[in-house]
């Protein structure tokens, strides 16, 4: 469904000079600042997958998604989405993808939600009968009925996000890009968004690419993740494999009598009772627990290693 090969994007912009005559010098000189945002990224995603595309801020996630959607033209490398080259065939590609930005709504701010959905239907040439069916399905899945007539600017963040998801899926695109769809939402709203994504993927075999900082989204939805940092792929594969491969050691956390908390790493192969006995001999223990490695810990460790 999506094929990316040695994808690279270098941003090039005129060097800005400071000082009172700075703007003039910027205009007249031909000096450029270059920054490589995506550096030889390759991956393949098949139809019906939900893939988490993860990385710290500035890793190149958004730039990749912008190239996948045809907003940006790659500096070099190959992209194919549903058999098309997005930047060359932008409009056809646009019909095949739905995009949700958590930070920015595509809905018309001053108009009732339903008007925005109708306009999206028009823009994507959805025939009236199919539109009615799609709208019904979206309303049922997302519970839009209560606020269809409310101007978007009066919607809560959670309601607005549900509206945005509906707008992105109204024309049944086979691919859905989600950029931080749960940012700023409360627990209930997050749950609703995740359920919708899972449902869409299950019913319509929609391929989903999800970028997020909330690893709970990833754990709930994705079987596979692609980790990038500084424009390069660090890991591509299943979540379970990742945790096994990179698993930091389990840890023993003990609370001491004087309210102090100490953490001990459990080296691989060492019997735990032995460790506990050793710790108990040296310290007065009040309570203890064992921490299993989690995704967050794994990913933090990978980032830290890529820093070195």
């Amino acid at each position: 469904m999506i094929r990316v090969e040695s994808l690279t994007k270098v941003f090039r912009r005129p060097h800005t000079f400071s000082g009172p005559l700075g703007p003039l010098r910027t205009l007249l000189t031909r000096r450029y600042d270059e920054r490589t945002a995506v550096d030889g990224v390759s991956f393949e995603i098949s139809a019906g997958e939900i893939v988490g595309y993860l990385g710290p801020n500035g890793a190149g996630k958004s730039t990749t998604v912008k190239m996948l959607t045809g907003i940006l033209t790659p500096t070099s490398g190959l992209i194919e989405v549903d058999g098309r080259v997005p930047w060359r065939d932008r409009e056809a590609n646009a019909r095949a993808v739905g995009v949700v930005f958590g930070q920015r709504s595509q809905l018309w701010w001053d108009l009732p939600l339903i008007d925005s959905l109708r306009l999206v239907g028009d823009l994507y040439d959805v025939p009236a009968a199919r539109f009615a069916g799609s709208l019904r399905r979206m309303c049922d899945l997302l519970g839009l009925d209560d606020f269809l007539q409310t101007p978007v600017r009066q919607l809560s963040l959670g309601q607005r996000m549900r509206g945005d998801l509906a707008a992105a899926m109204l024309y049944d695109p086979p691919i859905l890009y989600l950029d931080e769809p749960t940012v700023g939402l409360d627990v209930m709203a997050k749950q609703a968004v995740r359920e919708f994504i899972a449902e869409t993927n299950r019913l319509g075999r929609t391929t989903v690419v999800l970028t997020t900082h909330d690893l709970a989204d990833v754990e709930a939805l994705c079987e596979r993740i692609i980790l990038i940092d500084k424009g390069r792929v660090l890991y591509d594969g299943g979540i379970d494999d990742l945790v096994t491969a990179y698993a930091p050691p389990r840890r023993l956390v003990v609370e001491l009598a004087d309210d102090e908390t100490r953490t001990f790493e459990i080296a691989a192969g060492r019997p735990i009772p032995e460790l506990i006995a050793q710790v108990a001999a040296e310290h007065p223990i009040r309570d203890l627990s064992i921490r299993e490695p989690d995704l967050e810990g794994v990913i933090t460790r990978i980032y830290a290693e890529s820093e070195r």
């Binding site: 045809g70 932008r90 646009a94 993808v97 995009v99 930005f101 920015r104 595509q106 823009l123």
Partner: peptide
């Protein structure tokens, strides 16, 4: 403001 991104995402 990045609004142009949305414009480029639509088939028009």
């Amino acid at each position: 403001e990045g609004e142009l991104d949305r414009v480029l995402l639509r088939p028009l």
